[in-house]
C-alpha cells in the first residue's frame, strides 16, 4: 500500500519549507502532518554559518482512502485484474465500497462468502486507520440484487405466516442477509421476526405477533 506520500523540504523558515512541501504534494495544510527535522538558525551577521529549516511534510491518508487502496490491490492480487473500487455512502451513512469490473465476479463466492470475507478484511484495515463507520462491500451489484430478492421473499413468507397462522422458518443466512429480512418486516404490525440457531446455520423465524 504505497499511499503514504511525503517530501522533505529545505527553506529559510519552517513556514516556507512547509509551503514548498504542500505545493509539491498538491494538498492543503490540514491534509498533512509536519515534522520539523531542523530548526533554522541565524548565523553570524545573518549570513555566515546560518542553517536552513528542514521539514518533512507527510500527506495524511484517510481511512477511506486506505480501505480503497487495500481492496484494489487485494482484488488485483487475487487475479481479478482491472477491477475498480469506488467509495460511497449508504442511505444510513455507512461507508460503502463497490468493486466493479469484468473480472470482479470471482470475488463474490458461493452465496457471497468471498464478499463477506473481503468486507471483514476491509473493515479491519479501515477501523485500524481510524475509521468509525460500518463498512459495506458490494461486488458488481450482487448485494443490491440479492437484497431486492430477499425483501420480496420476506414479504411473501410474511403473507404465508399470516395466512396459515403458523410461523415460517427461513433458510440459514449470514448476518447481513438476516438483517435485511428483519428490516423488511419491522414495520409490519402483525409480524415479529427473530433469529435462532448458531452461525453459520442461524435462521430467521417469521411469526405472528401475539395479541395481549
Amino acid at each position: 500500500m504505497e499511499l503514504r506520500q511525503s517530501v522533505e523540504k529545505t527553506a529559510k523558515t519552517v513556514e516556507e519549507a512547509v509551503g514548498l512541501g504542500l505545493a509539491e504534494l498538491g494538498v492543503a495544510r490540514y491534509q498533512v502532518d509536519v515534522c520539523v527535522l531542523e530548526e533554522p538558525t541565524k548565523g553570524l551577521f545573518g549570513i555566515l554559518g546560518g542553517r536552513m529549516a528542514r521539514v518533512k511534510v507527510t500527506r495524511r491518508v484517510s481511512p477511506e482512502e486506505k480501505a480503497v487502496a487495500f481492496l484494489t490491490e487485494l482484488a488485483t492480487r487475487m487475479g481479478a485484474l482491472g477491477v475498480t473500487c469506488a467509495p460511497g455512502q449508504t442511505e444510513d451513512e455507512n461507508f460503502k465500497l463497490e468493486l466493479t469490473g469484468a473480472n470482479a465476479s470471482r470475488l463474490i463466492g458461493k452465496r457471497g462468502q468471498t464478499i463477506e470475507a473481503l468486507q471483514v478484511l476491509a473493515a479491519v484495515v479501515y477501523s485500524r486507520a481510524g475509521g468509525n463507520r460500518r463498512v459495506l462491500l458490494d461486488v458488481n451489484s450482487y448485494r443490491a440484487k440479492r437484497q431486492e430478492s430477499l425483501v420480496e421473499l420476506a414479504l411473501k413468507l410474511a403473507a404465508k405466516a399470516k395466512f396459515s397462522g403458523r410461523r415460517v422458518i427461513m433458510e440459514p443466512m449470514g448476518a447481513y442477509e438476516r438483517r435485511v429480512i428483519h428490516m423488511a418486516l419491522q414495520d409490519d404490525k402483525d409480524i415479529v421476526t427473530h433469529s435462532e440457531g448458531d452461525e453459520p446455520f442461524r435462521k430467521v423465524i417469521i411469526a405472528l405477533r401475539q395479541e395481549h
Binding site: 487485494l74 487475487m78 470475507a117 473481503l118 471483514v120 479491519v124
Partner: peptide, 17 residues
C-alpha cells in the same frame, strides 16, 4: 480476530484466489 473472524476471512480469500 474475535472468534477467528479475520483468520476465517483470510482463508476464504485465499481459497477464492
Amino acid at each position: 480476530g474475535k472468534q477467528g473472524r479475520i483468520a476465517k476471512a483470510i482463508r476464504t480469500v485465499v481459497k477464492a484466489a
